Each structure stands twice: as structure tokens, then as C-alpha cells.
Amino acid sequence: MKSLFVTATDTDIGKTSVCAGIAHSLKKSGIDVGIMKPFACGVKQKTGFSSKDLSILSNAANVCDPEEFVNPFFFPIPTSPYTAAKNLGVKIDIKHVTKCFRKLNKIHDIILVEGIGGIMTPILKDYAIIDLIKDLNANTIIVTSSKMGTMNHTIMTCNMCKNMKIPVKGLIINNFDSTGYPISELERDLSVLTNLPVLCSLPHLTKFNLADFSEMITSQVDISTLIN
């Protein structure tokens, strides 16, 4: 089995929800899945993990690994890791991130890693999320949306992964914008234009429910194929 990196075409696309749904599905299938979000930015929670995303993911996978492993770098401002580190005077150590990943990999069968923003979100001057995916040697899925502009963003993301020889298992469309593309057209066109399978399309939900979200994913995707 190979770990899975959940990336996206942009920020606020629904990576955390998708990642949580997959984690829950893997756990239900009997796979010991660990979770990791190497970089998180935003408002710090008052209790539990600093990042709300980590709380969601840990609950979905039913794990309680140390925060310093699952989230090596948290920045209490909503921006890229590169900008946050510059503003706060923090030095980002990629070797430390990969070391934490290896430690988690020894504890669990696989690690489900959630990125931050899109694949070109900067971490260091010459190092972005796409470079981290390469260094972790993980399979990848790309979460995209139905909003206008998604064609451009998705095709660019897929082409970058192709150029970097990153194995992409497919696309997941998160339909949170009902004013965007019709899903049937988007599925048809993206599969042709990217030469990648559209693994599933998730409907707009007014409130996230882990069990329902997980069931929607597993009803459309053979989860085991994402980690092989």
C-alpha cells in the first residue's frame, strides 16, 4: 500500500471534507490509516489541535497521534506557509516534515496527507506543495470544484503533476457552487482534457456529515485502488 496525498486546484475547495471521507472509508474497510497535514494556517482552536482541520481528520480516522507529528507547522494567520513563516520569523525545515511522515508511516498501514491550498502554494522560495508530494512519494488525488474557472485551474494542476511525474489517481469534483458548470458536462470534459478519471462528484451539502460523506465517496470509488 502507498500513502495518499489529497491536493486541490485552489484553497477552500473541500480537501478536508474529502480527506476525512476517505479516511473514514479506509478505517471502515479495516485499514489502519494515519493522517497528516504538514502545514496548516488559520485561527488557532482553543482546545485540541491548533488546526480545526486536524481535529476533523483525526476524528475521521479515529487516531490520536501527537500533534507535532501530524502537523509539524501551524501558523495562526490565514496565508501561505511561505508568507506566514516570513511574517512570523519561523524557519521551515522540510527534512523535519519528511521525518514526521516516516515516523507516522511506521505506526500505520498508510498515511493520508492533506495539503494546503493548491499545488503551487509556496512553502519555501523554491519549494511548493507539489515538491512536497514528490518528496513523500505518495499517490495523489486532485480535488476540484464546479465553479467557473475550474477548467483552467484543473488543467494547469494536472499538467504540473504530469510534468513532475507525480502519479495522480484521478479527480474528485466537489460541487459546492450550484451556479457553476453542470456536473455531467464537467465530468465529460475534464476526463478528456486531463486524460484522468473523474473518480466521483460530490453534491453540495448545507452541513457536513462524516458518515454520509464517506458513504457517498465509497459508493462511487473503489477506495482500495487509491492506495495501491
Rank of each mutant, 00 (worst) to 15 (best):
T79K: 12
G118W: 08
A20W: 04
I56R: 04
F208S: 10
K2D: 08
S29A: 12
T179V: 02
S224Y: 04
M156W: 01
P167T: 14
F213K: 08
I13T: 11
K91D: 13
P197R: 10
M160G: 09
S50K: 15
N228A: 01
K99F: 13
I183Q: 03
D131M: 06
T225N: 12
G48E: 10
P81A: 13
T16I: 11
I223H: 00
K125L: 08
P66L: 01
G30R: 09
P167M: 15
T218E: 15
D12M: 02
L199Y: 01
D189R: 11
D65R: 02
T140Q: 06
A85G: 05
D131N: 14
A128D: 09
T194R: 10
N152M: 10
S25T: 14
F74E: 12
T179S: 11
L54T: 04
F69E: 09
F49I: 01
V143R: 06
S219N: 13
D126H: 14
V221L: 00
G34P: 02
C100P: 02
N105T: 07
K95C: 05
I217M: 00
A85N: 04
E68S: 09
D126L: 06
L132E: 03
I129D: 09
Y181N: 05
I183H: 01
I111L: 04
R102K: 12
G180V: 05
K106W: 02
L104N: 04
N137P: 00
I31M: 15
H153F: 12
I92Y: 05
V221H: 00
F208C: 07
V33P: 06
D93R: 10
S178Y: 00
I111K: 07
I110V: 15
Q45R: 14
D93G: 06
S58Q: 07
T121F: 03
D65C: 04
L112G: 00
K207G: 01
F208G: 13
D93V: 05
G115M: 12
C161L: 13
E215N: 09
G149E: 01
T9Y: 09
F74M: 08
T140W: 09
L196V: 05
M36Q: 14
K103G: 03
P78M: 04
F208K: 06
E187N: 13
P203L: 02
E185T: 14
P167C: 11
D135L: 09
G30D: 10
M216Q: 11
S145C: 05
F101S: 08
S201R: 01
D177S: 01
Y181I: 00
S51T: 05
A84H: 12
G21V: 11
L202W: 01
V192P: 02
I107N: 10
I223V: 14
V43D: 11
I119L: 14
T79W: 05
N152K: 06
K147M: 06
N209P: 05
I123M: 03
K86N: 14
T206Q: 14
F101I: 02
G149N: 07
P72D: 07
L202Y: 03
F39G: 08
V6W: 00
G30F: 04
K106D: 13
V6K: 00
S145D: 12
H24S: 13
L26W: 06
V18P: 04
N87P: 01
I56G: 04
C100W: 04
I77Y: 07
S146R: 00
T98G: 09
G118Q: 08
K95Q: 15
P203N: 12
M164N: 15
F101M: 05
